[in-house]
């Protein structure tokens, strides 16, 4: 089973899928950075001086990381970027849910802010994190005994 799960060809599909998801997510935010800035503000964790900086810089970073993952160019670096981003998003969403905030996560552009949609976003984010972690760890697969 582990041979299958860590097979480099098996990993190509999820890697490309995660890459595509990040390219799409970055693209929707890049179209409307003002909306994305409002979404970041709804989390109520960052000072106003940093919100627009993130709203302008984060979407191209997501697109770059997504493209690198999908195309397989320095994909482990892109994979680590995706891991860091999904971990940060999960913490931000969880704190919003814990504080009972009306968050529009803005993960894929603007949506309908509601507690249900925030739980769905958190679940999706954790799934992306787990899949990225699996791909990242698979990049460091131990060699079998007797293998050079």
């Amino acid at each position: 089973m582990k041979d299958f799960l860590f097979n480099r060809w098996v990993l190509v599909v999820p890697r490309m899928l995660i890459g595509a998801v990040f390219v799409y997510a970055g693209g929707t935010k890049l179209i409307d950075p003002g909306q994305f800035a409002d979404n970041i503000a709804s989390f109520q964790i960052l000072p106003d001086s940093t919100i627009n900086v993130l709203a302008t810089g984060l979407p191209p970073t997501e697109i770059l990381a997504g493209l690198m993952m999908a195309l397989g160019w320095r994909h482990l670096t892109a994979n680590l970027t995706v891991l860091i981003l999904t971990a940060v998003f999960a913490v931000a969403l969880a704190q919003g849910l814990a504080r009972g905030l009306q968050i529009d996560c803005g993960c894929f552009g603007s949506g309908n802010p509601s507690p249900t949609s925030t739980w769905i976003s958190l679940g999706r984010d954790i799934l992306l994190f787990a899949a990225s972690l699996w791909i990242y760890l698979a990049g460091f697969r131990s060699k079998k005994e007797g293998q050079n």
Binding site: V53, G57, L58, P60, T61, A65, A78
Partner: peptide, 11 residues
Amino acid sequence: ILATAGFGVGF
């Protein structure tokens, strides 16, 4: 480096 490039493009 990737994030710096991303933020540079963004700005």
